[in-house]
């Protein structure tokens, strides 16, 4: 497991601005990338594999219903434009976050769903972590289940990916830890009771037993920030999208697992 000197966030960001590029080799080589699935107990693995036992499938079923339901009588449902999700949405989640031309920023899948609601459905955005947003996102992402994560080769995403990496490697909070200290340098070891995973975002939104519910990757990132005794970024903050953009490149070519189950 390679070691990285932990830079304080301002230093890391300054270094990033100076060089304009991501420094250093990939912390975990593609061949060594592992889903957190591999470290789970056989019981929880079975729960994820079996659609009848996977509690995340309830959200997917809800999402399927929302997909065909127009938000108002005068506007189309998702299906009105996109048709059968099993074909139109296949592979989409494997390519997100993507570049959003309208806002000239990277956008994650739940952000895209809300942008679509606003522009094409005349509807208010769904709140972060609301059951409907989790359900629709899980339904769309499930259409890519089994497909390998394949971030687009889009140079416009490079600054966000670099910023995401700088954030991932920055020491934060009262404990002065970084994401990288655990998930790049010490994965496989034990933090108290927990086996440290690589932190690969292969199955979001996912059902976490600890939460007794579904949650997004942003929720998980907030949990880790709080654990480091750092001030979490607000939901929807560009920092999360940057982290998601970096994490997608760090996870490829692992397959999408949505809806994953995690302890």
């Amino acid at each position: 497991m390679p070691r990285h000197p932990g830079l304080p966030l301002p230093v890391a960001l300054a270094a990033l601005l100076l060089t304009g590029a991501v420094a250093g080799a990939e912390p975990i080589a593609p061949a060594d990338r592992r889903s957190g699935f591999d470290q789970m107990s056989a019981e929880i693995q079975t729960m994820q594999r079996d659609d009848d036992a996977n509690p995340g499938m309830l959200a997917v079923v809800d999402g399927a219903e929302l997909w065909t339901k127009p938000p108002s009588s005068s506007r189309p449902a998702c299906a009105g434009c996109h048709g059968e999700a099993s074909s139109s949405m296949r592979g989409v989640a494997a390519r997100y976050p993507a570049w959003d031309a309208r806002t000239a920023r990277p956008i994650d899948l739940q952000g895209r769903i809300n942008a679509c609601r606003r522009t094409h459905q005349g509807a208010d955005p769904l709140a972060y972590e609301s059951p409907d947003l989790l359900a629709l996102t899980a339904f769309v992402a499930t259409q890519s289940r089994g497909q390998r994560i394949a971030p687009p080769e889009d140079a416009r995403l490079a600054p966000a990916r670099a910023e995401g990496r700088a954030l991932f490697e920055a020491r934060m909070g009262q404990l002065g830890l970084s994401c990288a200290i655990c998930h790049d340098e010490n994965w496989g070891r034990r933090l108290g009771a927990a086996a440290i995973p690589q932190g690969q975002p292969t199955g979001y939104p996912l059902y976490r037993l600890e939460w007794q519910g579904m949650g997004s990757l942003q929720r998980r990132l907030r949990n880790c920030l709080t654990g480091m005794r750092a001030e979490p970024f607000g939901y929807g903050a560009p920092e999360y999208v940057a982290l998601e953009a970096y994490l997608a490149t760090r996870a490829a070519p692992l397959p999408v697992e949505t809806p994953a189950v995690r302890p």
């Binding site: 002065g176 830890l177 340098e185 750092a230």
Partner: peptide, 25 residues
Amino acid sequence: DTIMPSYYSLTGLTRVGRVWQGRPI
């Protein structure tokens, strides 16, 4: 580069959570 938190220092820390600010661990 130590990963051990500094239990009695307030310097060199970033984005310390609101409830933890201004006091050592």
